[in-house]
């Protein structure tokens, strides 16, 4: 890994050294969010530790977005406590979260497709050389750093000058992750990074998540796919209808249990009964449904 930080960029002081693996960075206790009378999220408890991946699983509308918005500083929580490095906090803006080393990589990735990779990498925090009106971009450092930081994440780019739009979805995701890491993130929040990707590309992104964990970062991995979450996750928090269904270390839950909980065993069973009533017990669909229920319960 390159340690050549640019001349004008200063990493956050607390982030210069990665914390010891397993040290809790973020702890949320019974956290909740109400928008007026609408309860979007309630009683969620989990933790994000250095060098570990916390997976947040849930179906659409389960409250995943609300949860990451609280951590990212986009919305303040209304109930419970959010401890960062043991200090109770309310994150008022994404800037505050960033200053605490919490970086969010959104689904749209915040990249400008037509700009070269190296310009995207440093966008908003460009290093410069020279004085006053002659201040210019330190292009050599920018290109070199981009290449070496991406290499550290295992992405070997032919040419950092190519527009970022020419990269594959997975590679773009990884550039966004590498950028967050370089600019001092200790906690990475990844919002459904594999949702729009094919099987192979998802694998690539999972590899980089593992890479980020190896580098000592705490990762919050939001997904609705237990098959993506289980291989890289250390801790699994399940959300359903704005409520936590539990927070499990990997040692306490198997992939099958996770899948069953995700699929909502009880709900699946109810659906199966309903189908067999409406279509007749020997209908093709109803039979398949029953098998699925048996699978989920097994």
């Amino acid at each position: 890994m390159s340690d050549t930080k640019s001349t004008t960029h200063e990493a956050h002081p607390d982030t210069s050294k990665p914390a010891e693996v397993g040290t809790p960075i973020i702890e949320v206790v019974d956290i909740g969010k109400r928008y007026g009378s609408v309860i979007a999220l309630s009683e969620v408890t989990t933790s994000v530790r250095a060098g570990e991946v916390t997976c947040v699983l849930g179906d659409n509308g389960a409250g995943k977005s609300t949860f990451i918005k609280i951590l990212a500083g986009a919305h303040e929580h209304t109930d419970g406590t959010l401890n960062i490095d043991g200090v109770s906090r309310h994150l008022a803006s994404p800037r505050v979260a960033l200053d605490l080393g919490i970086a969010t990589v959104y689904q749209d990735l915040a990249v400008v497709p037509l700009m070269p990779v190296w310009r995207n990498f440093f966008l908003g925090s460009e290093p410069t050389t020279g004085f006053g009106p002659f201040k210019k971009l330190d292009v050599a450092t920018m290109k070199k750093t981009t290449k070496s930081e991406l290499a550290a994440m295992g992405i070997d780019l032919r040419d950092v000058d190519q527009p970022i739009g020419t990269l594959s979805g997975g590679e773009r995701q990884c550039v966004a992750i590498a950028r967050a890491v370089y600019f001092g993130a200790r906690v990475l929040i990844l919002d459904e990074p594999t949702a729009a990707l094919g099987v192979k590309q998802s694998g690539v992104v999972l590899k980089y998540i593992a890479k980020a964990r190896e580098r000592g970062l705490g990762v919050v991995f939001i997904t609705h796919n237990p098959h993506h979450a289980y291989p890289v996750g250390d801790r699994f928090m399940l959300l359903r209808r704005g409520k936590s269904m539990g927070d499990f270390p990997k040692s306490e839950i198997t992939l099958d249990e996770l899948t069953a909980m995700m699929a909502g065993g009880a709900e699946l069973e109810a659906l199966s009964h309903e189908l067999s009533r409406e279509l007749g017990a020997d209908s093709e669909v109803a039979k398949k449904m029953e098998l699925a229920v048996e699978d989920a319960e097994a």
């Binding site: 749209d108 915040a110 400008v112 497709p113 700009m115 310009r119 966008l123 908003g124 971009l137």
Partner: peptide
Amino acid sequence: NWIFAVGGAQTASRQI
């Protein structure tokens, strides 16, 4: 750099 960015993807530029 900012001029290219705000022209190419304004929301992304703001986020970053």
